[in-house]
Amino acid sequence: MRLLRRLLIACALLGFVSAAGASPNAPAAGVEYLVLPAAQPTDAGDKVEVTEFFAYYCPHCNAFEPVLAAWVKKQGANIVFKRVHITRDMNVLPQQRLFYTLEALGLLEQYHAKVFAAMHESRLPLNTDEAVFDWASKAGIDRARFIDTYRSYGVQARMYQANAKMQAYGINQWPMVAVGGRYLTSPYHAHLGQTEQVAESQMQQEALQVMDYLVARAKADKK
Protein backbone atom coordinates (compact mmCIF):
# COMPACT_ATOMS: atom_id res chain seq x y z
CA MET A 1 0.00 0.00 0.00
CA ARG A 2 2.81 2.42 0.86
CA LEU A 3 4.60 1.71 -2.41
CA LEU A 4 1.39 2.18 -4.36
CA ARG A 5 0.76 5.50 -2.65
CA ARG A 6 4.25 6.71 -3.58
CA LEU A 7 3.72 5.70 -7.19
CA LEU A 8 0.43 7.54 -7.33
CA ILE A 9 2.04 10.65 -5.85
CA ALA A 10 4.77 10.50 -8.48
CA CYS A 11 2.18 10.25 -11.23
CA ALA A 12 0.20 13.12 -9.78
CA LEU A 13 3.24 15.38 -9.66
CA LEU A 14 4.17 14.73 -13.25
CA GLY A 15 0.93 13.75 -14.88
CA PHE A 16 2.33 10.62 -16.48
CA VAL A 17 4.94 7.90 -16.04
CA SER A 18 7.53 7.48 -18.76
CA ALA A 19 8.02 4.19 -20.54
CA ALA A 20 9.90 1.38 -18.84
CA GLY A 21 13.53 0.72 -19.55
CA ALA A 22 14.93 3.87 -17.97
CA SER A 23 17.96 3.77 -15.68
CA PRO A 24 20.15 6.10 -13.61
CA ASN A 25 22.40 6.42 -16.68
CA ALA A 26 19.46 7.57 -18.80
CA PRO A 27 16.90 8.77 -16.24
CA ALA A 28 13.31 9.30 -17.28
CA ALA A 29 10.81 11.82 -15.95
CA GLY A 30 8.21 10.13 -13.80
CA VAL A 31 10.51 7.23 -12.99
CA GLU A 32 13.98 8.17 -11.74
CA TYR A 33 12.96 11.79 -11.18
CA LEU A 34 9.85 13.95 -10.98
CA VAL A 35 9.11 17.27 -12.64
CA LEU A 36 7.15 19.81 -10.63
CA PRO A 37 4.13 21.26 -12.44
CA ALA A 38 5.53 24.75 -11.81
CA ALA A 39 9.17 25.65 -11.20
CA GLN A 40 9.90 27.09 -7.76
CA PRO A 41 11.98 30.26 -7.35
CA THR A 42 15.67 29.84 -6.50
CA ASP A 43 18.36 32.34 -5.61
CA ALA A 44 21.48 30.58 -6.86
CA GLY A 45 22.31 33.00 -9.68
CA ASP A 46 24.14 31.26 -12.51
CA LYS A 47 24.67 28.19 -10.34
CA VAL A 48 22.17 25.37 -9.77
CA GLU A 49 20.34 25.24 -6.47
CA VAL A 50 20.24 21.77 -4.91
CA THR A 51 18.12 21.31 -1.79
CA GLU A 52 17.88 18.25 0.40
CA PHE A 53 14.68 17.71 2.37
CA PHE A 54 15.58 15.54 5.34
CA ALA A 55 14.93 14.74 9.00
CA TYR A 56 17.40 13.96 11.76
CA TYR A 57 15.33 11.01 13.05
CA CYS A 58 15.17 9.37 9.59
CA PRO A 59 17.53 6.37 9.25
CA HIS A 60 17.60 6.71 5.45
CA CYS A 61 18.60 10.37 5.77
CA ASN A 62 21.33 9.35 8.19
CA ALA A 63 22.65 6.73 5.76
CA PHE A 64 22.49 9.15 2.83
CA GLU A 65 24.22 12.05 4.63
CA PRO A 66 27.92 11.10 4.13
CA VAL A 67 27.30 10.05 0.53
CA LEU A 68 25.47 13.29 -0.22
CA ALA A 69 28.12 15.38 1.55
CA ALA A 70 30.85 13.86 -0.63
CA TRP A 71 28.79 14.55 -3.75
CA VAL A 72 28.24 18.18 -2.73
CA LYS A 73 31.97 18.63 -2.14
CA LYS A 74 32.70 17.16 -5.57
CA GLN A 75 30.23 19.54 -7.22
CA GLY A 76 32.03 22.50 -5.68
CA ALA A 77 31.13 25.88 -7.20
CA ASN A 78 28.82 24.21 -9.71
CA ILE A 79 25.91 24.26 -7.25
CA VAL A 80 24.47 26.09 -4.26
CA PHE A 81 23.53 23.44 -1.71
CA LYS A 82 20.82 23.91 0.91
CA ARG A 83 19.09 21.74 3.47
CA VAL A 84 15.50 21.87 4.66
CA HIS A 85 14.55 19.97 7.80
CA ILE A 86 11.04 18.67 7.33
CA THR A 87 8.16 18.94 9.76
CA ARG A 88 6.05 15.94 10.73
CA ASP A 89 4.71 15.88 14.29
CA MET A 90 5.45 17.07 17.81
CA ASN A 91 8.24 14.49 18.24
CA VAL A 92 10.10 15.86 15.24
CA LEU A 93 9.49 19.54 16.00
CA PRO A 94 12.41 19.83 18.50
CA GLN A 95 14.75 18.31 15.91
CA GLN A 96 13.61 20.77 13.26
CA ARG A 97 14.06 23.65 15.71
CA LEU A 98 17.51 22.25 16.63
CA PHE A 99 18.56 22.31 12.98
CA TYR A 100 17.53 25.92 12.45
CA THR A 101 19.07 26.96 15.76
CA LEU A 102 22.43 25.53 14.70
CA GLU A 103 22.03 27.26 11.35
CA ALA A 104 21.23 30.60 12.99
CA LEU A 105 24.24 30.28 15.30
CA GLY A 106 26.58 29.47 12.40
CA LEU A 107 27.28 26.05 13.92
CA LEU A 108 25.51 23.80 11.44
CA GLU A 109 28.52 22.42 9.57
CA GLN A 110 30.29 21.75 12.87
CA TYR A 111 27.41 19.91 14.52
CA HIS A 112 25.20 18.55 11.72
CA ALA A 113 26.82 15.11 11.61
CA LYS A 114 27.00 15.05 15.41
CA VAL A 115 23.22 15.35 15.66
CA PHE A 116 22.83 12.34 13.37
CA ALA A 117 25.35 10.44 15.48
CA ALA A 118 23.54 11.36 18.69
CA MET A 119 20.27 10.00 17.36
CA HIS A 120 21.42 6.93 15.41
CA GLU A 121 24.53 5.85 17.29
CA SER A 122 23.92 7.07 20.85
CA ARG A 123 20.15 6.50 20.46
CA LEU A 124 19.15 9.86 21.91
CA PRO A 125 15.57 10.60 20.76
CA LEU A 126 15.93 14.41 20.92
CA ASN A 127 12.16 14.64 20.85
CA THR A 128 11.72 17.24 23.60
CA ASP A 129 13.10 20.73 24.11
CA GLU A 130 14.91 19.72 27.30
CA ALA A 131 16.53 16.73 25.60
CA VAL A 132 17.81 19.05 22.88
CA PHE A 133 19.09 21.58 25.44
CA ASP A 134 20.94 18.85 27.34
CA TRP A 135 22.51 17.51 24.15
CA ALA A 136 23.62 20.99 23.03
CA SER A 137 25.16 21.72 26.42
CA LYS A 138 27.03 18.41 26.54
CA ALA A 139 28.19 18.96 22.95
CA GLY A 140 29.93 22.16 24.04
CA ILE A 141 27.42 24.82 22.98
CA ASP A 142 26.66 27.62 25.43
CA ARG A 143 23.34 26.53 26.93
CA ALA A 144 21.85 30.00 27.55
CA ARG A 145 22.78 31.27 24.10
CA PHE A 146 21.45 28.14 22.47
CA ILE A 147 18.10 28.34 24.31
CA ASP A 148 17.68 32.04 23.50
CA THR A 149 18.23 31.33 19.80
CA TYR A 150 16.11 28.17 19.89
CA ARG A 151 13.15 30.19 21.18
CA SER A 152 13.76 33.21 18.97
CA TYR A 153 11.44 34.68 16.36
CA GLY A 154 14.21 34.23 13.79
CA VAL A 155 14.27 30.45 14.22
CA GLN A 156 10.48 30.32 14.21
CA ALA A 157 10.50 32.23 10.91
CA ARG A 158 12.98 29.76 9.40
CA MET A 159 10.75 26.88 10.42
CA TYR A 160 7.76 28.58 8.85
CA GLN A 161 9.70 29.03 5.62
CA ALA A 162 10.75 25.36 5.70
CA ASN A 163 7.17 24.22 6.09
CA ALA A 164 6.06 26.46 3.24
CA LYS A 165 8.82 25.07 1.04
CA MET A 166 7.76 21.52 1.82
CA GLN A 167 4.26 22.34 0.65
CA ALA A 168 5.47 24.15 -2.47
CA TYR A 169 7.58 21.16 -3.51
CA GLY A 170 4.98 18.59 -2.47
CA ILE A 171 7.40 16.81 -0.13
CA ASN A 172 5.86 13.84 1.68
CA GLN A 173 8.83 11.47 1.96
CA TRP A 174 12.51 11.92 2.69
CA PRO A 175 15.30 12.14 1.94
CA MET A 176 14.30 13.99 -1.20
CA VAL A 177 16.57 16.17 -3.34
CA ALA A 178 15.29 19.12 -5.36
CA VAL A 179 17.39 20.38 -8.25
CA GLY A 180 17.01 23.75 -9.91
CA GLY A 181 13.64 24.38 -8.31
CA ARG A 182 12.05 22.03 -10.84
CA TYR A 183 13.23 18.44 -10.44
CA LEU A 184 12.94 15.96 -7.57
CA THR A 185 14.70 12.67 -6.97
CA SER A 186 15.78 10.35 -4.18
CA PRO A 187 17.46 6.97 -3.72
CA TYR A 188 13.98 5.46 -3.84
CA HIS A 189 13.07 7.17 -7.13
CA ALA A 190 16.49 6.56 -8.71
CA HIS A 191 15.91 2.82 -8.48
CA LEU A 192 12.23 2.90 -9.40
CA GLY A 193 12.83 1.89 -13.02
CA GLN A 194 14.80 -1.22 -12.04
CA THR A 195 13.40 -4.65 -11.31
CA GLU A 196 16.17 -6.20 -9.22
CA GLN A 197 16.50 -5.62 -5.50
CA VAL A 198 19.71 -3.93 -4.40
CA ALA A 199 21.25 -2.63 -1.20
CA GLU A 200 20.41 0.87 -0.03
CA SER A 201 23.99 1.94 -0.75
CA GLN A 202 23.48 1.05 -4.42
CA MET A 203 20.26 3.05 -4.54
CA GLN A 204 22.17 6.01 -3.11
CA GLN A 205 24.79 5.78 -5.86
CA GLU A 206 22.04 5.61 -8.45
CA ALA A 207 20.54 8.76 -6.94
CA LEU A 208 23.85 10.57 -7.35
CA GLN A 209 23.90 9.63 -11.02
CA VAL A 210 20.42 11.02 -11.47
CA MET A 211 21.40 14.17 -9.58
CA ASP A 212 24.39 14.64 -11.92
CA TYR A 213 21.99 14.44 -14.85
CA LEU A 214 19.52 16.87 -13.27
CA VAL A 215 22.21 19.42 -12.39
CA ALA A 216 23.35 19.38 -16.02
CA ARG A 217 19.78 19.71 -17.21
CA ALA A 218 19.01 22.55 -14.80
CA LYS A 219 22.16 24.33 -15.94
CA ALA A 220 21.03 23.99 -19.55
CA ASP A 221 17.61 25.37 -18.57
CA LYS A 222 19.31 28.59 -17.48
CA LYS A 223 20.74 29.25 -20.95
Results as ranks from 00 to 15, higher is better:
A190N: 00
W174D: 13
L124N: 02
I171F: 09
S122D: 15
L126Q: 04
W135V: 02
T195P: 00
A139C: 05
A131V: 02
L124R: 08
D142Q: 12
D148A: 11
M166E: 13
D129L: 13
Q205F: 00
Y150A: 02
R145Q: 15
D148C: 02
Q161D: 07
Y183A: 05
H120T: 04
A157M: 11
F146L: 06
M159R: 04
Q173W: 14
K138W: 09
N163H: 10
A136F: 05
S186K: 01
G154Q: 15
R158F: 00
L126I: 08
V179N: 01
A199I: 07
G193Q: 06
E130Q: 15
Y150F: 11
R123Y: 14
M176H: 04
N172Y: 12
M176N: 04
V177N: 04
A178N: 00
Q161P: 00
V179A: 06
P125G: 10
Q202R: 13
A168P: 08
I171D: 04
G180R: 06
H189P: 00
V132F: 03
A178M: 03
R158L: 07
Y153P: 13
A157H: 07
V155Q: 04
G140T: 05
K138S: 15
G154A: 15
Y188D: 10
E200M: 14
T185G: 11
Q197P: 05
T185N: 06
I147F: 09
M203N: 06
G170V: 01
W135K: 04
S137V: 07
H189M: 14
I141M: 10
I171N: 08
A164S: 11
I171V: 11
A162Q: 01
Q173I: 11
A157D: 10
W135D: 01
I141E: 08
K138D: 14
G193W: 05
F133L: 11
Q205N: 06
A136W: 02
L126T: 04
E196S: 10
Q173T: 14
Q156E: 14
A164C: 06
E121K: 15
Y183M: 05
E130N: 14
W174P: 09
M166K: 09
P187S: 03
A136V: 10
K138I: 06
T128R: 02
F133H: 04
P125Q: 11
H191G: 10
G193C: 08
S152V: 09
H189Q: 13
A199W: 04
T149C: 09
Q167H: 09
G154C: 11
K165H: 02
Y160A: 13
Y153E: 14
H120W: 05
D134S: 15
Q205W: 00
R143W: 06
R143C: 06
Y153A: 15
M203A: 11
V132S: 02
